[in-house]
């Protein structure tokens, strides 16, 4: 019976894969030359209109910034949902009173007589190295974030690097005295406030006669300021959200 069921499953799945594969063939095999209209327009006018040399930044923070707003909203909701579910998991574990889950360990790396309540994988080696690398990674993250309009990078990429810097700092906390950056209340605050700022910036174009999501600095000498501003806000928001989520998944959130 079990074997028959397994064969039925495989048969059904093959049917699904076969149907989808046949449907997708024209998509993957299409030989039509790629259209160049949009590319040509952007090469000619993109830098002038948005101020950014990096055309990808020009698109996702200028021409199609509304998509980017949607993207940050998805991130925000995902973080809230993940935190809600994980906190529920933790409360269940605590309710059961299962003390075995937190490993009160004396690992090979800890010093004699030292009291550690943290996880077995937290060794001195890890703490020292990540604690030292953390600030450098943060600095690099801010560089990528702020130079997004000139070089490969931008708010999302920089934000993710900032998040890894935050994770390094959280890992490198010796004796569990958590630094301010790895406290969930502070990260949550940065996240909420930068979301509010993003929306205010998005609306601001209306008051300059540029319409919703228009560039309020379009007529000034530095139209690129809008992109730099958005990059910074997004970088902070992404860094805070993802750092927050990673710290929660490591089990360090209060």
């Amino acid at each position: 019976m079990g074997k028959r069921k397994a064969w039925g499953t495989i048969l059904q799945a093959s049917l699904a894969i076969g149907a989808m594969g046949a449907v997708l063939l024209p998509i993957f095999l299409c030989q039509t030359p790629w259209p160049t209209v949009a590319r040509d327009y952007l090469v000619e006018h993109g830098q002038h209109e948005s101020g950014a040399i990096n055309l990808v930044s020009a698109i996702y923070l200028g021409y199609r910034a509304f998509d980017t707003l949607g993207e940050t909203i998805v991130l925000l909701v995902a973080v809230i949902g993940t935190m809600g579910l994980l906190s529920r998991v933790e409360s269940m574990v605590n309710a059961v009173g299962d003390d075995d889950n937190t490993i009160q360990t004396v690992s090979a790396f800890s010093l004699r007589g030292e009291k550690r309540s943290s996880h077995v994988l937290r060794t001195h080696l890890l703490e020292v190295v990540t604690g030292k690398i953390g600030p450098i990674v943060l600095l690099f993250g801010f560089y990528v974030m702020l130079y997004g309009h000139l070089s490969p990078g931008g708010g999302f990429q920089g934000g993710v690097i900032i998040a890894s810097g935050i994770v390094f700092l959280a890992l490198g906390n010796q004796q569990d005295n958590t630094s301010a950056l790895s406290k969930s209340s502070i990260l949550g605050g940065i996240e909420s406030v930068s979301f509010l700022l993003f929306i205010i910036v998005a609306i601001s174009g209306i008051f300059f006669g540029k319409g919703f999501f228009g560039n309020p600095l379009a007529d000034s000498a530095y139209p690129v300021g809008f992109i730099v501003l958005l990059n910074s806000i997004i970088g902070l928001k992404v860094g805070a959200s993802i750092g927050f989520m990673c710290i929660a998944m490591m089990g360090g959130h209060d």
Binding site: R39, V43, I53, N54, L55, V56, D67, E71, F156
Partner: peptide
């Protein structure tokens, strides 16, 4: 698609910008 050296034969920047969004959404999901 970074216009450092004048009008070079750059690739289409639109797919890259769109996929940036799609990747982030994928990670969130």
């Amino acid at each position: 698609p970074i216009l450092e050296s004048g009008l070079a034969q750059v690739v289409d920047p639109i797919p890259q910008a769109l996929m940036l969004t799609a990747i982030v959404i994928g990670v969130c999901v």
